[in-house]
């Protein structure tokens, strides 16, 4: 997978507040890339910079391996922070402006309005829309002209639970069609449910980034139980790759290297003549991980 967005050493401050500190990462083509971080961690600043709305103090970025920025943006559908539309124009007329600037998607307007459930209100003025409808229109505008990349900053802001589920489903569908999606959010379960890659920001510093499996699996725990707990513990202490064993009631919680799989644990115990009565891979939830990371 080649990278579709490459960010190199970007720093940005607002007066005395440093919003981003030397952030670098790549977004591979075809992934769903989640940018996570608490409020004020620099997510929107990051996206604002790669969309040329904000200027970085230091560092640079490239889309599609170095395409001219405004040409690249015409092929990107993006929603940054708030839905931005002309209040006095209808949804349909607003999309005409988006399409005129992008030089694509003029004939998609009906279709995207249907996709985000606003077709019946297409001739209503933007100022008559509720928060959720404004957000839907912004997502619709991002979909104009079949973009290859979608950049979504807090896309579920203002949406009701049904709307949130719809957007999640939409993201999955679009990603299946090969569209790369970059999504910033503080709603962890959102990210966890759809993302293949994450980058975690805290106070402008990139804490970690990479494929969700790698980033999260390294700290996963395996739970095992057998009739003879003491014998099991003794056996596992000798197993390579097991870093820590914790006894909890009569269940052992193993903290393992990333290379250790549940199958290996099972095979090892069987080889030692122990039959496991319980074997479970307990993925650390992103939320737990996130809290651990950002509270350090």
């Amino acid at each position: 997978m080649s990278s579709i967005l490459s960010i190199q050493h970007i720093s940005k401050s607002y007066g005395p507040i440093q919003a981003l500190k030397d952030v670098s990462f790549d977004v591979p083509e075809g992934c769903v890339f989640g940018i996570l971080g608490p409020n004020g961690s620099g997510k929107t600043t990051m996206l604002g910079i790669v969309l040329d709305v904000l200027l970085a103090d230091v560092g640079n970025y490239s889309w599609y391996g170095g395409m001219e920025h405004s040409t690249a943006r015409k092929q990107i559908g993006a929603l940054l922070e708030t839905p931005n539309f002309y209040h006095y124009l209808s949804a349909f007329d607003n999309l005409e402006i988006n399409a005129a600037i992008k030089q694509r998607g003029h004939d998609d307007r009906d279709q995207v309005l249907k996709q985000v459930g606003l077709y019946e209100r297409k001739d209503s003025k933007f100022q008559t829309f509720s928060l959720g409808m404004k957000q839907r229109l912004a997502i619709g505008a991002a979909l104009l002209g079949n973009p290859k990349i979608l950049v979504l900053d807090e896309p579920t802001n203002g949406l009701d639970p049904a709307g949130i589920a719809e957007i999640r489903e939409l993201i999955r569908q679009l990603n299946k069609q090969g569209i790369t999606i970059i999504i910033a959010s503080h709603m962890l379960d959102e990210i966890e449910k759809v993302c293949t890659h994450v980058a975690i920001l805290k106070k402008g510093t990139l804490l970690l980034h990479g494929p969700v499996d790698e980033v999260l699996l390294s700290e996963d725990q395996v739970e095992v139980r057998a009739d003879n707990t003491a014998q099991l513990q003794q056996a596992l202490e000798a197993m390579p790759g097991i870093k820590k064993i914790k006894l909890n009631d009569n269940t052992l919680q193993l903290t393992c290297d990333a290379t250790v799989t549940t199958a290996q644990v099972n095979a090892y115990c069987t080889g030692m003549g122990i039959t496991l009565s319980h074997l479970l891979l307990r993925k650390k939830s992103l939320e737990t991980k996130f809290m651990e990371l950002t509270n350090q």
Binding site: L51, D52, V53, S70, T71, R73, K74, I76, A78, L80, T82, N84, F85, Y86, H87, N98, I101, K102, Q103, A141
Partner: peptide, 21 residues
Amino acid sequence: TNEYAYRTNRQNIIDGMKRIE
């Protein structure tokens, strides 16, 4: 100033206008 009030100046850029344009 409407462009700033509605933040459509940002949206124009996001959609692919250059700042100078």
